[in-house]
Design a protein around this nucleic acid. Structure first.
Length: 957
RNA sequence: GCGGCGGUGGCGCAGCAGGUUGACGCAGCAGACUUAGGAUCUGUGGCCCGCGAGGGCUUGAGGGUUCGAAUCCCUUCCGCCGCACCA
């Protein structure tokens, strides 16, 4: 489809609002704003302090999720959110707020590095070029950003503080008793004084050597290195966080397969904050869907830990269950194949009574276990899930003891139990769990019903075809030597058995979370270096603050080097490790110069976005990440926002559990350590919808350029051949991208801004319709013509009072637009401005008051044309800080209302009546209407419902 | 499978503390200005029947509550998104 381009001859009307005139107006006002610093927001420690009028204004901190400066540039889908926040910010300025609105760049990350590997261009070079391009694209849109506050996460002056925050986290531990993070020094003091004994079988603090102490503190630090199995992605040459791996075991970026590998990696103890991350969601103004996703990701479940003794060496298997009430129904146990206990307890031969089905055909338990483990390890997560339906497993040769019934229960290993959840071990209750039921059927294990079914199937499990699950029913078959749950309802039984277990020290009620710690290191070049060095004993030392920023060194070779995850002697080679001069250093960390090796992993690209809202507040502060007074002013807790945070944060829903969870976590650590007054980074979150586009594919499924497709009689053709059409994302590879630059050139930025917002509600996805853009262009043309004569350029407004009807239209528009803007309903705001403009277009002679109000109403949406018309109307000031019109309530109500007269619910007549018309009068008027009389057809009236002044409904007899 | 959101003209949508369905825009149709126009302006505008006056139908489908349902309740279908052996 060809682009509809207005091509009106310029000479026909020299002062017509054309794309060329729009371009001229827009460039001029963008320069004006820049010269005058129109969008600079004063801080409480600066300009604000000396200006009582400004200081009295309420503040608004309005943010977008900042962009990654990709080389592909922007398409029209990208700026939707930026336009929306800009309109909202402009509205807030005009309604008397001190508004902070700016935009930075999230510039570390894989694409720049991949590009560098391909082309040899340094990532900084390409990234900075991309930033320049993107800034130019964004400038054309007329976004009112405080440019002094913009930065990129790759600026050393910024990542200095990212590293600084890492050090704060490294130097903290979570004090469960206090319910907050505290400096590690406090913990050391507790160990030194003996107030806190060293845990487990460790020696007392005084007897530990440096390595022992470092190791112990590592168990507490909020940032710690550990050797756990991690997600290794050979395709990206790095490990990934759980949040970056999709459900089918592939990398979120690039869609490469991900494998488990055991590597020493940095982690952040986000699990310590699970409860607070969950609870504080309640105080946030976020879409319920996003809150729900975070709740699911955190995955809180209440239940109990129960110990099952195994063997004679005092060993036990600890399980987590949410159904401790069904303990009497636990007829076997299952461990995850990777469970460490398995190797310790496997006996040399199959015990008496081992069923053939349990052994997997192996001669000894050790052989069976080894074979099953090997089989499980060979499977990727994808295969493991695909095979999920058939329950496989093997007997370990070991029996444990059910602590309530004293019964011997066989212990299996099976795929369907995951090492990463709970304790990696379960008690299996086949009667009341579908997975256990399937496994028990496959392995001929006993099934015992311990909760009375309410569906009439009875307690004889032999006839069952599935597990029974009910939380309202009563317990049966649950009588032990000194405890009985029989007859108790499920919740009571839970409480009773939990108490019983706790009394004997063999279990306790607990809360389990699905959330895992956050894997925080990457084997890549283009990220923040860790401010960590290792001494000759391999002990990690934080760099002192004075050595920050630790700048990313130049390297020749950015390429990641893969390795063999099977071979324990190999590990990924990080790009930074190849730079021996940088890695090996002599530093004085307080005890004289010593040799150290630097950490060569880099931080994940989430690090820079975890705290950037704070840096906008005080971007040039080189003594602190943010001045406390400034932070309190913009971010602090306040009425309606009990945890503090940004007033409005707009971005895509794809960050629901990544960026938004990590940023909340860092916020809470900084709060605990006293660096900020806000517990939450983002008080109000809004997810903008996606701008979709049609993707046209040829018979082989390859996208063809959307702009070249022609439609005839509902058939789409490219080069004469039929193509298929589907609605999808907009993108270069799909050949359907429309850029903001081309729309700006064809119509102007104000038209683009209006069209993007007029398409529909901000949070709904909708297809881009190239033809429809012209509708908003026409609105601006009509508005222009209502003020400026197209032939002469003279201002045509008249200094007359508007008539009564125009006043009502005007004030209803002001009232509606004000409400819509405040609620981010820009589509309906635009419709109301259009109605007003259509009305005055008909009037022809436009009263100055009405024209000025219309210009101010549209100013947040179309700022360039508004500034231009405002100036031509004779005003010296900018509309940016001019007060928004205020509706006069006297004109918001109608003089007369249309009253609908229904007969039996069908509209038969309309009456024009005064708003205050008495009911009896209205009823009489309605019954006298000829159409009503006709509709009644002589039938009597049974009932008349009068809802004055809008409706009368007559029910015939 | 579980959870969430949503189905209204040819299209994007508006209306939802029950009360005129279709605001606003695109496309369409008619007209104006024009050498011409895919520019601009004016008008029109759900669907069906009817020359017309007018009548009937209509908010995914079916049912319910009500004088009255797009809006509330139940059942069902379709679409999109998230999670998924979570013990």
């Amino acid at each position: 489809m060809s682009q509809t381009t207005p091509t009106a001859p310029e000479n026909a009307a020299p002062h017509r609002y054309t794309a060329a005139l729009a371009a001229d107006i827009e460039a001029r006002w963008q320069d004006f704003w820049e010269r005058h610093g129109t969008y600079q927001a004063p801080n409480p420690t600066g300009d604000l302090a000396g200006d009582p009028e400004l200081a009295a204004r309420p503040k608004q901190f309005i943010m977008d999720m900042f962009p990654y400066p990709s080389g592909a540039g922007l398409h029209v889908g990208h700026p939707l959110g930026y336009i929306a926040t800009d309109v909202f910010a402009r509205f807030q300025r005009m309604t008397g707020h001190n508004v902070l609105h700016t935009l930075g760049f999230d510039a570390f990350g894989l694409p720049a590095e991949q590009y560098a590997v391909q082309t040899g261009t340094h990532p900084r070079t390409s990234t900075e070029a991309n930033i320049v391009n993107m800034k130019a694209q964004l400038r054309r849109l007329g976004l009112g950003h405080d440019q002094r506050r913009s930065f990129a996460t790759i600026d050393p002056g910024y990542y200095r503080w990212t590293q600084w925050i890492f050090l704060q986290i490294f130097n903290s531990w979570y004090d469960e008793d206090a319910g907050r993070a505290r400096p590690v020094d406090d913990l050391v003091k507790q160990f030194e004084s003996g107030e806190r004994p060293t845990p487990g079988d460790r020696a007392p603090w005084a007897e530990l050597d440096a390595a022992g102490r470092a190791d112990l503190l590592g168990e507490y630090r909020l940032a710690y290195a550990s050797d756990a199995p991690v997600n290794w992605c050979p395709g990206l040459g790095t490990v990934l966080a759980n949040e970056e791996v999709t459900a089918d075991g592939r990398s979120e970026r690039g869609n490469f397969p991900v494998y488990k590998a055991k590597l020493r990696q940095w982690n952040m103890r986000i699990t310590a904050y699970a409860e607070r991350l969950l609870n504080d969601l309640d105080g946030l103004d976020w879409p319920e869907a996003i809150k729900l996703q975070q709740r699911n990701w955190i995955g809180r479940s209440e239940g109990a830990r129960v110990d099952f003794p195994v063997g004679d060496a005092g060993r036990k298997i600890t399980v987590f269950t949410t159904r401790q009430d069904t303990l009497f129904g636990a007829t076997y146990m299952v461990l995850a194949p990777e469970h460490p206990l398995v190797g310790e307890v496997v006996p040399p031969s199959w015990p008496e009574g081992t069923r053939p089905a349990w052994t997997g055909g192996h001669a000894t338990p050790a052989e069976a276990v080894a074979a099953y483990r090997a089989q499980a390890a060979a499977k990727s997560d994808v295969e493991r899930q695909a095979d999920a339906k058939d329950k496989t497993g093997v007997f370990t040769g070991v029996y444990a003891t059910n602590p309530v019934s004293g019964e011997r229960v066989p212990v299996f290993i099976a795929d369907y139990v995951l090492m990463g959840y709970g304790t990696g071990a379960i008690m299996a209750v086949p009667a009341h769990d579908g997975r256990d039921f399937a496994f028990a059927r496959a392995f001929e294990l006993p099934i015992r019903c311990v909760v009375e079914p309410t569906d009439g199937r009875g307690t004889d499990t032999a006839a069952w075809t599935d597990a029974f699950d009910s939380h309202e029913a009563k317990l049966v078959n649950s009588r032990g030597e000194d405890v009985s749950l029989d007859g108790l309802a499920v919740p009571d039984a839970k409480a009773e058995i939990t108490r019983w277990l706790a009394e004997r020290g063999i279990g306790e009620g607990t809360v389990n979370y699905r959330l895992r710690d956050w894997l925080f290191s990457r084997q890549r070049y283009w990220g923040e270096p860790f401010p960590i060095v290792y001494d000759e004993d391999g002990i990690a030392h934080p760099l002192p603050e004075s050595m920050l920023p630790l700048e990313l060194p130049e390297v020749e070779d950015y390429a990641p080097r893969t390795f063999d995850p099977e071979d324990a002697d190999t590990s990924p080679e990080t790009p930074l490790s190849r730079n021996e001069d940088w890695v090996n250093v002599t530093l004085d960390l307080g005890d004289g110069p010593r040799r150290y090796r630097r950490e060569t992993n880099t931080m994940p690209n989430w690090a820079g976005s975890c705290w950037y809202e704070l840096r906008y507040l005080d971007p040039h502060n080189d003594r602190r990440l943010v001045d406390p007074e400034i932070e309190r002013y913009w971010m602090g807790p306040r009425e309606g926002a009990p945890h503090g945070g940004v007033d409005l944060y707009v971005g895509g829903a794809e960050h629901a559990v990544l960026h938004l969870l990590y940023a909340r976590f860092w916020s809470k650590v900084l709060f605990d350590l006293g660096h900020v007054s806000s517990r939450e980074p983002f008080h109000k979150l809004y997810n903008q919808g996606m701008i979709q586009a049609y993707v046209y594919r040829d018979s082989r499924g390859f996208p063809v350029p959307a702009a070249e497709v022609e439609e005839r009689d509902g058939v789409f053709r490219h080069d004469g051949r039929p193509v298929t059409r589907e609605l999808g994302k907009m993108g270069k590879s799909l050949k359907n991208a429309v850029t903001p630059d081309e729309i700006c050139t064809d119509y102007g930025a104000d038209t683009l801004r209006l069209y993007e917002l007029a398409m529909g509600p901000l949070d709904v996805s909708r297809p881009w319709d190239a033809r429809a853009v012209v509708g908003q262009y026409r609105l601006l043309q009509r508005l222009w013509r209502n003020v400026v004569d197209e032939a002469s350029g003279a201002v045509t407004v008249v200094d007359e009072e508007p008539d009564e009807e125009t006043l009502r239209v005007l004030h209803k528009a002001i009232d509606g637009v004000t409400q819509d803007m405040a609620n981010l309903r820009f589509n309906t705001a635009i419709a109301k401005i259009t109605e007003l403009n259509n009305h005055v277009t008909k009037v022809r002679r436009v009263p100055r008051r009405v024209a000025e109000a219309a210009v101010l109403l549209i100013a947040p949406l179309a700022p360039h044309i508004a500034e231009e018309l405002w100036r031509r109307l004779g005003h010296e000031d900018s509309v940016v800080h001019h007060p928004f019109p205020v509706a006069d309530p006297a004109y918001v109500v109608d003089e007369t209302v249309t009253c609908v007269v229904q007969v039996k619910g069908k509209v038969r007549a309309r009456l024009e009546v005064a708003p205050g018309v008495p009911e009896a009068e209205l009823e009489a008027l309605a019954l006298a209407e000829p159409a009503v009389v006709a509709a009644l057809g002589g039938a009597g009236v049974r009932k008349v419902i009068v809802r004055a002044p809008k409706l009368v409904n007559i029910v015939p007899a």
